[in-house]
C-alpha cells in the first residue's frame, strides 16, 4: 500500500494521518502535545509506522499545517506546507462538497470559513485573545473538577438556562463563581458556559457574514456535544460533525500534498524517512545583537550540530543558513 501523510501541529494537539490514493483515511491519531510538539510528531510517526506497517518507499508525499507547520515540515521533509484555513477547507470539501459554513475551534484559535461552490470565499480567525477556544474550556473544566470529556454531556442535562459572561476568561470565571453562589448546578453553569462560548465566537468571527447551511463543526472542541447543541440553538439548523472532526487539518494537508505531487508529476517526495525521525534535535534561542532590533532568534539543531530551521530574525540574516530555506515545494 502507498500512502499520503498529513501532519497538523497545533498549540494543544499534534495530529497525524495516513491516507491511501483513494482518499481513504487508514490511520489517524490525535495526540495531546503537552507543550512538546516535536516529540509528539515523532511519537505519531512511529505509531503510524507500526500501525500500518509501511516502509519509507510507501510514502508518496507529506503535507504539514498548523502553527508548527514550518518546523514539522523541515523535520519530516514535507512536500507541501500550508496554512490552516486552506487545509481545513480542503478536507471539509472532500467529505462534504456542499458545505457552506465551517466552524472550527481548536486549542488556541478559532476560525470560521465561508464556502461557495466548493471554494473558500471568506474566512476569519480570532485575533487577540484565546477566550472561547479549547484552552478556555480546559481551564474551566479543571476549575469545576469535571473531566473535559464529560463536559458536553453534563451540559445537556441542565434544566435551566443561566447566562455566563463569556467575553473574557477572567470575567467568565468570576461570573461563574457568582452563579454558583446563587445555587445553580454544575450542569447549568456548564451549559451557560457553552452558550457563552458560542455567543462569543459568533460575535467575534461571524459578524457581517451571512451564515448558510450546511453547517460543519470541526476541530478538537467539536467533541463537545454541549457546544454543538449551543451552535445548533444559535443558527437554528442542524450542525454536522464530520467523522474525522479532530484531524481535519491533517487530512486536508495530505490531500493538498497529493494534489501537488500529482499535478507536478513528482516521483520522489521530500520525505526523509522514518529513521531520520529518531535523531535527536533541540531548539535553542539567542538574542541577535547585529542591530538594534535585537530579535529573538530560534534555531533547531540536530545532534550532529546541523541547523535544521531558524525563525525570528527580521532581517533574514540567519534564515538562509538553515535547511528549511532549502526545502522546495509549498
Amino acid at each position: 500500500m502507498k500512502y499520503y501523510l498529513g501532519i497538523d501541529i497545533g498549540s494543544v494537539s499534534t495530529n497525524v494521518i495516513a491516507m491511501d490514493k483513494d482518499y481513504n483515511v487508514c490511520f489517524n491519531q490525535y495526540i495531546r502535545a503537552n507543550g512538546q510538539p516535536l516529540e509528539s510528531v515523532k511519537k505519531g510517526m512511529t505509531k503510524l509506522k507500526e500501525a500500518i506497517g509501511c516502509s519509507d518507499d510507501d510514502i508518496l508525499g507529506i503535507g504539514t499545517t498548523g502553527s508548527g507547520r514550518e518546523l514539522a515540515g523541515v523535520l519530516v521533509g514535507a512536500d507541501v506546507i500550508k496554512n490552516e484555513i486552506t487545509a481545513h477547507a480542503t478536507a471539509t470539501l472532500h467529505f462534504h462538497p456542499d458545505a457552506s459554513t465551517i466552524f472550527e475551534i481548536g486549542g488556541q484559535d478559532s476560525k470560521i470559513i465561508i464556502l461557495q461552490d466548493g471554494m473558500v470565499t471568506d474566512f476569519a480567525m480570532n485575533t487577540v485573545c484565546a477566550a472561547g477556544t479549547g484552552s478556555f474550556l480546559d481551564h474551566q473544566a479543571e476549575r469545576l473538577g469535571v473531566p473535559i470529556e464529560h463536559f458536553g454531556e453534563l451540559a445537556l442535562t441542565a434544566e435551566k438556562d443561566v447566562r455566563i459572561a463569556g467575553r473574557c476568561t477572567v470575567f467568565a470565571e468570576s461570573d461563574m463563581i457568582a452563579k454558583q453562589q446563587y445555587g445553580f448546578s454544575k450542569a447549568e453553569i456548564i451549559k451557560g458556559l457553552c452558550t457563552a462560548l458560542v455567543r462569543n465566537y459568533i460575535n467575534n468571527l461571524a459578524r457581517a457574514k451571512k451564515l448558510k447551511p450546511p453547517f460543519i463543526f470541526q476541530g478538537g472542541v467539536a467533541a463537545n456535544v454541549g457546544i454543538r447543541k449551543a451552535f445548533e440553538d444559535e443558527v437554528g439548523e442542524k450542525v454536522i460533525i464530520p467523522k474525522y472532526f479532530n484531524v481535519m487539518g491533517a487530512i486536508g494537508s495530505a490531500i493538498l500534498a497529493k494534489e501537488y505531487i500529482e499535478e507536478n508529476n513528482i516521483e520522489k517526495p521530500n520525505f526523509k524517512g522514518f529513521e531520520q525521525l529518531e535523531l535527536e534535535f533541540k531548539p535553542t534561542s539567542f538574542e541577535c545583537n547585529g542591530c538594534s532590533n535585537m530579535c529573538e532568534v530560534i534555531r533547531v539543531i540536530s545532534s550532529d550540530n546541523e541547523v535544521l530551521a531558524v525563525w525570528g530574525d527580521k532581517c533574514g540574516k540567519y534564515a538562509g543558513t538553515s535547511k528549511a530555506s532549502q526545502t522546495s515545494g509549498r
Binding site: S67, K82, N83, E84, I85, T86, D117, G118, M119, V120, T121, D122, F123, M125, W311, G312, K314
Partner: peptide, 22 residues
C-alpha cells in the same frame, strides 16, 4: 507575532488564488 500575520495573509492570498484557478 510575525507568524500570526504570515498565516493570515497566506490564507487570504491562497483563498483568492485557488478561486481564480477553479
Amino acid at each position: 507575532g510575525e507568524s500570526h500575520l504570515q498565516t493570515r495573509i497566506e490564507a487570504f492570498t491562497d483563498m483568492i488564488k485557488r478561486k481564480i484557478r477553479k
